[in-house]
Computed example of a mutant assay.
Amino acid sequence: MTQHSPALSPELCRERQLRLKKVLEQHSLDRAIITSRENIQYLTGVRTHRLMQAALCLELDGNCTLAAPNQIPEEAAVDECVTFAAQWHSTLRQEQLAVALKVLFEAVGSEAKHHVGLEATAGGNLMIRNLSGSNPNFTDLDADLWKLRRRKDTDELEMIRKAISCTEAMYAKAREIIQPGISELEVFNQLHAAAVIEAGEPLTALGNDYQCNSPGGAPRERIAADGELFILDLGPAYRGYYADNCRTIAVNRQPTDIQHQAWEAIVNVLNMVEETVKPGVSCRALFERAQQMLDEFQEDAFFHHLGHGFGLFPHEAPHLNPNWDDYFEEGDCFTAEPGLYTEALRAGIRLEQNYVVTDSGVERLTNFSLEMS
């Protein structure tokens, strides 16, 4: 049976290019030069291999040119595609970005352009400056691109839903295999396999937290013991688009009274999030309300963010965090991940749901069990 393999829509990629073109107009820029893998994928649908680089030029007139490694992609939302040799006789070249930019500027020209938008946090800016012609003016587009990426289009949501389906398969496998005596590494290996089978291909990422009797961390050789809780915070990425959700499983499937009380307190916070969030709601205020609720169980037992946006990067806006002053917007994909951590809980519980903000509230994207058993 052939699995459905979602991909970014060329038509919606073109719409995203038009949104960036409006940003160029607002900043009085002639062109944008894009080198980050995530933003190239977002704008063209092309995601290069993790060991290969590319470069993109979007002109104020809307013309889009891609410098791609080795060969022209089968499908790319661009007007022109030029190629460069990312490998010589099968050996990867370390200077790929410099070559990609050189080929790109040979295709689009450099001497007439003096107002260029760049990603300040991306590599290659010095090379771009040297290749862009004499005395060009540069503007940082990072904040604009991050803002554009907040509102997920339907093709992006399809990719995210596919990644979330991988987490559902992983949790089903976890409930099947977790028991006293299993090692964290064995759990990790079997969950990895379950996700790859669901995806039908290798994944971009797998998430960070696979430890038992711990708030989180990479898997160890450690053996899970009776009475402990196993926190699994899974973040598989399907073709660059992330999921990020967490479940906590009692190793013996018999949570104690205090563990169940903590679980109920966390579920109450998730219910509050679903009842409260809509466009315009303060993320900081939501965090503060969650902190108050969890402090009623035990002060200082909740010590991290309430959640964050996600998409082509694991942590994006909006930030459910007192260090930011964000507000929810329609189209945001975000996580809510309240947790409680004490010695009595062996060593804590975290539950995490994924949502997309609608015009009047939220749609929950993670519709599988939160139970510890």
Rank of each mutant, 00 (worst) to 15 (best):
H192F: 03
D244Y: 05
T204I: 05
E201C: 06
P215Y: 07
I197P: 02
N208P: 03
L234I: 12
P202I: 15
E198L: 00
Y238H: 14
Y210E: 10
D209Y: 05
E198I: 00
Q211M: 15
R222A: 11
G207P: 09
A193C: 01
P219G: 04
L229K: 06
E228I: 10
A194Y: 00
H192T: 08
A243K: 04
L232C: 12
Y241K: 01
A199I: 02
R220N: 10
G207T: 01
E221S: 10
C212G: 01
Y210S: 13
L232S: 06
N213V: 11
G217C: 13
L206F: 08
L203M: 15
G216T: 11
G240F: 11
G240D: 06
L229I: 10
E198A: 05
L203E: 07
R247T: 08
S214W: 07
A225V: 10
A194C: 00
T248E: 04
G200L: 07
L229T: 09
P236R: 11
N213W: 10
R222T: 15
L232D: 08
I249H: 07
P236S: 11
T204C: 10
A193F: 00
L203S: 05
G235I: 14
S214F: 06
P215D: 07
H192E: 12
D244K: 05
A225F: 03
P236W: 07
P236D: 09
A205R: 07
D226Y: 09
G240W: 14
E201G: 08
H192Q: 08
Y210R: 14
Y242M: 03
R220M: 12
A193E: 03
D226W: 11
Y241T: 04
C212N: 06
S214V: 04
D244I: 01
L203C: 00
T204W: 03
F230D: 05
R222C: 08
P202V: 13
A224P: 03
